[in-house]
Design a protein around this nucleic acid. Structure first.
Lengths: 128, 128
DNA sequence: CGTTGACTTCGTGCGCGCTCGAAGTTGTAG
DNA sequence: CTACAACTTCGAGCGCGCACGAAGTCAACG
């Protein structure tokens, strides 16, 4: 996380105005760090700044917003689950395609096309 | 995938100029569709337009670029694997936090704080 | 005493990936 | 015949999430 990003997060209200040293330099407490870590984790998993702002705002209003915050997290968690499934699918697809490429390379290495006709399962070899 | 996006992809060279009906309207072949599906899948897994352009360009040069293309896919696949790990971590973290919220809500429902002192594992209840 | 260098504020810029809107043509339904 | 919807091209606009640059302040080093 760059300094630019930290200042930006403060500007847009993702973190409360953070403590300063005598010279005006920011001093992040451990609580700040923990919170930033959390933010980082949420960003890394595709939560938008807007949602994070919403969550941060609720958090600052105390336990009364517990339910709402939980819902927010649950929604995000559900999104993550979906994303994981999507990624796993893509991972498998790529495994297929990569295997296919290896086959093609082998054919080339051995010496040009011989009897290749039906070894090319159309969608794999051409459509990709 | 919107019509806008399709045209955009054609503009930036992700798909070859696609066939037209007599009136000039685009007609997507099944090969086009398959390729678009692949593109969609790659986009959904965070491959940048630039990388996709690179891949598309290689693809248009035939089997000679097989190795390079494979490497591209392998890199992307590795990225996906990392991302999956990250998402799973976040998913677990959220499970924790959500459980904690449920506990808080229970305390509220039962009737205000009683003997709550050490039931609040700092980083979970406050730093988030 | 001077010179790095790390911080500060403020506003602006930028890359990405679409997304939209205007103006024009064509095909189909009532 | 007349709407109306669905496509076309072209260029511009937009939201997101930072990243940057200028101008200034301060601390420590040699």
């Amino acid at each position: 996380m760059t300094a630019h990003t930290l200042r930006y997060y403060e500007r847009v209200g993702l973190i409360q105005p953070v403590g300063r040293a005598r010279n005006g330099h920011r001093r992040y407490s451990e609580a700040d760090e923990a919170w930033l870590n959390f933010l980082h984790c949420m960003r890394a998993t595709n939560m938008s700044i807007r949602e994070m702002q919403r969550y941060a705002a609720l958090r600052e209003q105390g336990d009364a917003t517990s339910l709402e915050r939980r819902k927010l997290l649950e929604d995000h968690q559900a999104g993550i689950a979906e994303k994981i499934a999507e990624l796993q699918k893509a991972h498998a697809l790529l495994a297929h395609k990569i295997a296919n490429y290896k086959a093609i390379e082998d054919r080339i290495r051995i010496g040009g096309p011989q009897l290749v006709e039906r070894e090319k399962p159309a969608e794999l070899a051409t459509a990709s």
